[in-house]
């Protein structure tokens, strides 16, 4: 048997095509694709575009699961096309559609502008009252491993929108802030350098935000980076309720420590935080 016989097979690929200038609704178009071991969905789409249909539109950039551009619905599940090998998903038929819960710009390209607008609303950066320290820091902000671990996993988010596509609340209510923005709000709220809880509270504690999450948990199940937005949202509810009951302990944000101040430096190296995805 030739090596090619073992490694290559022809599969059917159904791609949802949609051109807003001519189509009323999306239609599934069938392509035959020769798939080989290791070929990702993004590679397959490129192959189809190069050899069968140059009009096919899809979005990508890094091709290595870092930029978050290529999330799409692959056999019914939101995934990164560049990070998903076709033969891991199927050896017969593959269906590729744009992310649900977003307007479709064309074919497999969702309009992610609402996702980013909601992200901006939660002030996704360190907020402090000492403006001078923000502009020209006097030193380093040294965090303990415990302080780091509180928010570390949420920093892995690449803003791909897969969690929003899987969220049943986002499916029924387009104004819902969504798991990505809410998880990012929590990421900063529990950062010991941050002092922005009260400025974010009016957004995350408002209507169409954390309290509209019914904890379906789909966001966490589909996240390609192992982020757990559902967990962040539940913890955020806890922070808001503690604040309402005047039980939230306000700790002053971490102070910068001059670069030459070695007094509190630990001699032992910090432990490496655990991976959040299977390796």
């Amino acid at each position: 048997m030739k090596r090619q016989d073992v490694q290559e097979r022809i599969i059917s690929v159904y791609i949802h095509r949609f051109d807003p200038t001519s189509d009323k609704k999306p239609r599934a178009v069938l392509y035959e694709l020769a798939v080989e071991q290791g070929m990702t969905v993004l590679d397959g789409l490129h192959r189809i575009k190069e050899t069968q249909d140059p009009t096919l539109a899809f979005r990508f950039s890094c091709r290595m699961g870092v930029c978050g551009s290529c999330a799409m619905l692959i056999n019914g599940k939101p995934m990164l096309a560049c990070n998903t090998q076709i033969l891991d998903v199927t050896d017969k038929a593959l269906t590729v559609a744009p992310l649900p819960n977003f307007r479709v710009v064309r074919d497999l390209v969702p309009d992610l502008a609402p996702l980013f607008k909601k992200h901006v609303q939660v002030n996704p950066y360190i907020v402090r009252t000492d403006g001078h320290e923000m502009e020209s820091p006097s030193g380093e902000f040294i965090q303990t491993p415990e302080e780091l671990i509180k928010y570390l996993q949420f920093t892995y988010c690449i803003k791909c929108g897969a969690c929003v596509a899987a969220c049943p609340t986002a499916a029924t209510d387009e104004n819902y802030l969504g798991p990505m923005a809410l998880a990012q709000a929590y990421r900063y709220i529990v950062d010991s350098r941050d002092d922005g809880f009260h400025s974010r509270k009016s957004v995350v504690g408002a209507d169409k935000a954390v309290f509209n999450c019914h904890y379906a948990g789909e966001c966490s199940a589909v996240c390609p980076k192992g982020v757990d937005p559902a967990r962040a949202i539940q913890f955020m509810k806890r922070e808001l309720v503690r604040d309402y009951l005047l039980m939230r302990r306000h700790t002053a944000p971490l102070k910068a420590r001059a670069l030459n101040d070695k007094s509190k430096e630990k001699k032992t190296p910090l432990p490496v935080p655990p991976y959040t995805v299977d390796r």
Binding site: G205, A206, A209, F211, V241
Partner: peptide, 8 residues
Amino acid sequence: MNKTASWF
């Protein structure tokens, strides 16, 4: 009543 209070 704000949303946090309503929910609590």
